[in-house]
């Protein structure tokens, strides 16, 4: 690990000033990802700004939304009564991620900002456009069993398939995407709210960038607006072992049902793209319909038409289809 300077701001404003005044400096919270990256020489910030003691841990329900501080621990959020009651999808996704020990350290903000676990990104001896822009994507012609199957989407444009085929590793973010969460960000130009769909980037010309955060900006909270999905939501994670493994594919499915019919539907997929992948058309396809395996199969296959496999991950197209069907069935309560 390269030597670095440790800074400890007293307030959010001081933290932001430190980050603004020290280009290259990084915030550190739980450190469950950044410390690994530093040990391996993938990240080498000259200065670390420790934000752990800033007052950003609170989880509260105000007006029409659940507001969760960026420093709230993954484990605290997952077992918070308000979260479990109002947004069970989020609690399920959190518990599907990492291990108990990691969840006790990792924060909501850190979870949003964790970096891909692509092996090429992690190995300095191998090419990686995300780690070293222009060096090439090691995974594209290499070992890509766990890599992306969705690339372009929804008018973002400018996509270059070969720039990076890594996937976003978070489970929590998949649920947050389905729940249309807002991310509250504070920075040199003040506070702003970013919708989940606009928070992470697809792999465009700049795969080294994971998000649209601006220099110096600090995550302070997330906000989940109340919804009617609590009774019919399910997070399904398919992985190579029973726990403590990143998703091959994950599905956050949320339905609003009444009188045996679906009246609102949201879905996001994990392990399939450079960011949590939102299935935008699902609401249109399910609204007003009675749930059935056949319907869910059609709906799943529809979205998979735009999927594109690399050499070793063709199985993900079928697996994602199956996982969508399974998650929808569970969410809808049909077996």
């Amino acid at each position: 690990m390269k030597p670095f300077q440790y800074l400890r701001p007293k307030t959010v404003q001081e933290a932001i000033s430190m980050a603004t005044d020290n280009p290259g400096a990084q915030y550190i919270a739980g450190g469950t990802n950044l410390v690994d990256l530093m040990k391996r020489g993938i990240a080498s910030p000259p200065k670390l700004i420790d934000i752990n003691h800033l007052p950003l841990k609170k989880i509260e329900h105000r007006y029409d939304r659940l507001r969760i501080g960026a420093l709230a621990l993954n484990s605290d959020v997952a077992r918070h009564k308000g979260v479990v009651a109002r947004q069970p999808l989020l609690a399920q996704a959190l518990l599907a991620g990492a291990s108990g020990q990691l969840r006790n350290m990792a924060t909501v903000g850190g979870n949003l900002l964790q970096r891909t676990r692509c092996s090429y990104f992690y190995d300095l001896a191998l090419p990686c456009n995300k780690r070293q822009p222009g060096s090439g994507c090691g995974a594209e012609g290499g070992v890509n069993r766990t890599h992306a199957i969705f690339f372009a989407g929804n008018g973002f444009g400018g996509y270059e398939a070969s720039s990076c085929i890594a996937v976003h590793p978070s489970d929590m973010c998949v649920a947050l995407t389905a729940l249309e969460t807002n991310v509250v960000v504070n920075g040199p130009e003040g506070e702003r709210r970013v919708m989940m769909k606009d928070f992470h980037r697809l792999s465009t010309q700049q795969p080294e960038l994971d998000t649209y955060l601006r220099p110096g900006e600090l995550l302070t909270a997330i906000e989940v607006v109340d919804n009617a999905f609590a009774k019919h939501s399910h997070y399904l994670k398919v992985r190579d072992r029973a726990s403590y493994a990143f998703a091959l594919v994950s599905v956050a499915a949320a339905l609003q049902m009444d009188g045996g019919r679906i009246w609102d539907a949201r879905m996001a997929l994990g392990g399939v793209a450079h960011k949590p992948w939102r299935y935008w058309a699902i609401d249109l396809m399910l609204r007003g319909q009675a749930p059935s395996e056949k319907l869910f199969q059609e709906v799943a296959e529809h979205e998979m038409q735009s999927a594109e496999a690399t050499a070793q991950n063709a199985f993900k197209i079928k697996l994602t289809t199956n996982a969508m069907v399974a998650a929808l069935k569970t969410a809808a309560g049909i077996s």
């Binding site: 092996s119 190995d123 191998l126 012609g141 290499g142 070992v143």
Partner: peptide, 13 residues
């Protein structure tokens, strides 16, 4: 798992 282009393991953690 090895990336045979490099003769290097890509599952080394």
């Amino acid at each position: 798992v090895m990336d045979h282009r490099f003769g290097r393991y890509v599952t080394s953690d």
